[in-house]
Design a protein around this nucleic acid. Structure first.
Lengths: 223, 223
DNA sequence: ATGATTTGGATTGTATACAAAAAACAATAG
DNA sequence: CTATTGTTTTTTGTATACAATCCAAATCAT
């Protein structure tokens, strides 16, 4: 386990601060799958008592980032290839759903935001800054999610993305796919702009399927 | 708040027992939307300390059954018509997804189970026992979910169903729709049996859309 | 009266103490 | 040397104590 340090924010209860800290540590890989989350250890590392640690663990558990066996404590949840496939399958369906809802409901303002995000993404493909690129991609999809006006769907999708996060950045390292991604984004924007549900559904489907294939590839290579 | 009593199970940690108890109380309406979940009150009602109560609340929170404002405690989450629509929209997409996956993966054994559940449902429509009927319907859909071999999808769908639960039983009280429901189930079974993805998708879509309309009706009537 | 302010009680947040279970270790018998 | 039992240590589960915050009623000034 790498050193952990509290992401301090004086206004949030400690359980939330601890939750965010652990969540990020898990996502960035500082806490590895299978690693035990021992209350006393974490408590002393983060300089708090066991109480907020325990509450944070209960929260991580429900997010799918930790698993606990009663009386044996919690561990960082592992992500097998199968798990990843399962998540991708769900995300594919919901990403398409989000696009379809957005197609009907998106406002001019929101469309502008989607376009801006697509443009930022395009620019980032030129700078070779993978971190920024990933962020731009997230923004693009979030802009579409937001247009659904369905908070439950939005939070579900962001939870799914979270679970995929560990492999996400990897697949964005393949620069040969950049132009393809930009084109896919453009087609999605076109679909939204013209309220062309058919085109939009097809292009979003192609986009997420492409990502699915790419990530599957990344996972295979790692093992 | 109606009287609460611990669903005692000596092997589970108290937090889980409390969680189940509160979850069921919320779903059956004993704890009403907006009702405060006060730690000390619940603790004394259930005869435990605040610690397991707090942990259970963190879990309910992540399930969407409770909402908490920092330093102000938790309340039972309300379900507006809008919330319900949002959940139904998601469930529709995922139910169809589940059917499509099942169509490819379902085993003979699992198919037998689906058929049996459909038959049990049909029988229940004759007895006018709404509770049993609801249970049979749950079994039918669970049998399909199980065939997806995707645990994350299964647990997501059962969480969504949970959120709809309060209105579920209501819509099953309209006996005039029973024959329609039975027919829809039959078509779904037919689709699975013949591995006819097109038919299956259509019939599942019709089925969940029908439920959506019925529930929307129920909600409107209540307000 | 009305509005600001103080103050007491209620409630949540955090730390800690103690109990119970599990894990690690050591000792002994085979 | 292995297996088994008993003992110690570690770790989780639960209760409780104390601190910080919030809320509402009472008080005070205008």
């Amino acid at each position: 386990m790498k050193d952990l340090k509290l992401n301090e924010n004086a206004f949030l209860p400690l359980r939330d601060v601890v939750f965010n800290t652990l969540r990020e540590a898990i996502l960035r890989g500082d806490l590895k799958p299978g690693e035990r989350l021992m209350e006393l250890t974490l408590a002393s590392k983060l300089g708090v008592s066991r109480t907020p640690i325990r509450e944070a663990i209960r929260m991580l558990e429900q997010e799918g980032l930790a698993v606990t066996m009663p009386r044996r404590g919690a561990q960082v949840a592992g992500m097998t290839e199968k798990d990843m496939e399962d998540v991708l399958q769900i995300r594919e369906a919901l990403d398409i759903l989000a696009a379809q809802i957005a197609c009907e409901k998106i406002t001019e303002e929101q469309l502008v935001e989607v376009k801006a995000a697509a443009e930022r993404f395009r620019k980032c493909t030129l700078t070779h800054d993978v971190k920024k690129l990933a962020e731009a991609d997230v923004n693009f999809h979030d802009a579409i999610y937001n247009a659904t006006d369905n908070p439950k769907l939005i939070s579900l999708l962001s939870n799914l993305r979270e679970q995929l996060y560990r492999y996400r950045v990897e697949y964005l390292k393949d620069e040969s796919k950049y132009s393809e991604l930009v084109e896919e984004h453009d087609r999605i924007v076109e679909g939204l702009e013209n309220r062309n549900m058919e085109l939009l559904t097809q292009s979003m489907k192609a986009h997420v399927e492409g990502q699915t294939v790419a990530m599957r590839h990344v996972i295979r290579d790692q093992d």
